[in-house]
Write a protein that binds this DNA or RNA. Structure first.
Length: 422
DNA sequence: TCTGGGGTCCTAGGACCC
DNA sequence: TCTGGGGTCCTAGGACCC
């Protein structure tokens, strides 16, 4: 029989930190978002003392001090590297692996029977842990949504020891009855509130709801959820990634920014990031949106959100070309006498870059710029990001992120390797 | 100046995911 | 004092065309 397995790392960012710093094991630990703003990963011990997901760190300061919680800035370079190691292990088990997020993957599995599926699940869990040090949970079901339900129970019921196979029909009704509606994949806060008001409190209730009712009160996404809970596959396994539609680079600032020069430096840097990613994925962008925002939490300040989308013609992935257009957009939306908290750029209308000359408008200059970009990328890969920068601004200033306690990038920087002393 | 419907395309905003 | 970032999908509504 064939089934879908969801492999989900437990408290992924915290687990990455623990893999290199065993002293954190058993200790309450949290990892923060960019700018050290919110809690985005919590160890079980941190969950138990009542630190909620996504809570701003300043709201739980006293809790953290009272319990001696370890607090770390996020280290995406480390997490990204451990993520790809985890995905490589999964590919040893199946030709169909969908990398769903940094810490989750859907995998197609095949076995004689349910017992065989569960055995595979346990092997996956053991091998990922042995090769990466990351503990995972495995949920198995006939559809992605059922695999997610199974994963929820694998994580929350200790007696399952992190692996749950939900393919046997006899298990489905009791498992779905014990799945709160807000735990169903695709049901967020808003839908959960509305569904509960209509008496739908569990995954089982949604599975049993009439299609006409769902169609009238939800949308096609709701219909798909219900069908998937009944075992009808609506979401296929995307083991070949779909072409990307957009690339964004946006940040909140470390401190409020008011000058156009500082905003230019920030936007110039965001374009650099986005264009690097564009070239890495061999694509060209056709439009760019630039936006700036004031601080929505400062209720006494005048609020403003400005954004402008401009065409990139011809389509390009050359940093300096995109910067020119981005700065034009920024100047158009910039308003003096305001204090800004956040800005960003979004590249859209992406198409593959086949690297062919485009005779209609390609000039010798463009060809030279492409070669230059390739060289800059090589240098920055070899000697570290921002060894060579494009643009005329100083990419340094108060807009830069706060990051006070990042661990070393153990696996991606030679000078930050783990040192062993005897 | 009034009268109609159907189709497409685009955009903004909402909801959700991790 | 201090409140993340990068994505996708869906829908409603407006503009436009015939």
């Amino acid at each position: 029989m064939k089934a879908v397995a969801l492999i989900d790392a437990n408290n992924f960012y915290v687990s990455c930190e623990r893999a290199f710093n065993p002293r954190l094991r058993g200790e309450p630990t949290v990892v923060l978002s960019n700018n050290d703003g919110c809690v985005v990963s919590r160890s079980n011990e941190a969950k138990q003392i009542g630190i909620r997901m996504a809570v701003p760190i300043f709201q739980v300061r006293s809790l953290i001090e009272r319990h001696g919680v370890h607090v770390l800035s996020s280290n995406y370079e480390l997490y990204g590297d451990l993520s790809s190691r985890m995905m490589n292990v999964l590919e040893e088990f199946s030709p169909e692996v969908e990398r769903y997020s940094i810490d989750e993957a859907f995998v197609s599995l095949e076995a004689e029977d349910s017992a065989g599926l569960e055995k595979l699940g346990r092997e996956i869990k053991a091998r990922v842990y042995r090769y990466t040090g990351i503990p995972v949970s495995v949920g198995i079901g006939a559809t992605k949504t059922l695999a997610k339900v199974a994963g929820f129970h694998a994580k929350t019921l200790p007696q399952l020891e992190s692996v749950f196979d939900l393919t046997p029909a006899s298990l489905q009704v009791p498992a779905l009855r014990r799945t709160p509606i807000e735990e169903v994949w695709g049901v967020g806060y808003r839908w959960a509130t509305k569904l509960k008001a209509n008496g739908i409190r569990t995954a089982f209730d949604l599975r049993e709801a009439r299609d006409e009712w769902i169609r009238a009160n939800m949308n096609v996404a709701g219909l798909r959820m219900a069908h998937e809970l009944r075992g009808i596959r609506c979401h296929t396994l995307a083991s070949i990634p779909q072409p990307r539609r957009a690339i964004n680079s946006t940040r909140s600032f470390g401190k409020m920014v008011d000058s156009l020069d500082d905003l230019k430096a920030a936007v110039g840097t965001f374009v650099t990031r986005a264009a690097e990613k564009l070239r890495r994925e061999r694509m060209l962008a056709g439009v760019i949106t630039v936006f700036v925002l004031t601080d929505r939490y400062k209720l006494d300040d005048e609020q403003y959100s400005g954004s402008l989308t401009l065409q990139l013609a011809p389509m390009t992935n050359i940093t300096t070309d995109i910067q020119t257009v981005a700065l034009k957009a920024l100047e158009a939306i910039y308003r003096k006498d305001l204090r800004y908290k956040k800005a960003g750029v979004m590249l859209g209308d992406l198409v593959p870059d086949y690297g062919l000359p485009q005779p209609l408008w390609e000039t010798g200059k463009t060809e030279k710029m492409r070669e230059l970009m390739a060289k800059v990328d090589r240098l920055n890969r070899r000697y570290g990001r921002e060894t060579v920068q494009c643009g005329t601004f100083i990419s340094d200033g108060k807009w830069q992120m706060q990051m006070n306690s990042r661990s070393p990038r153990y696996t991606t920087r030679w000078d930050e390797l783990l040192k062993v002393t005897c």
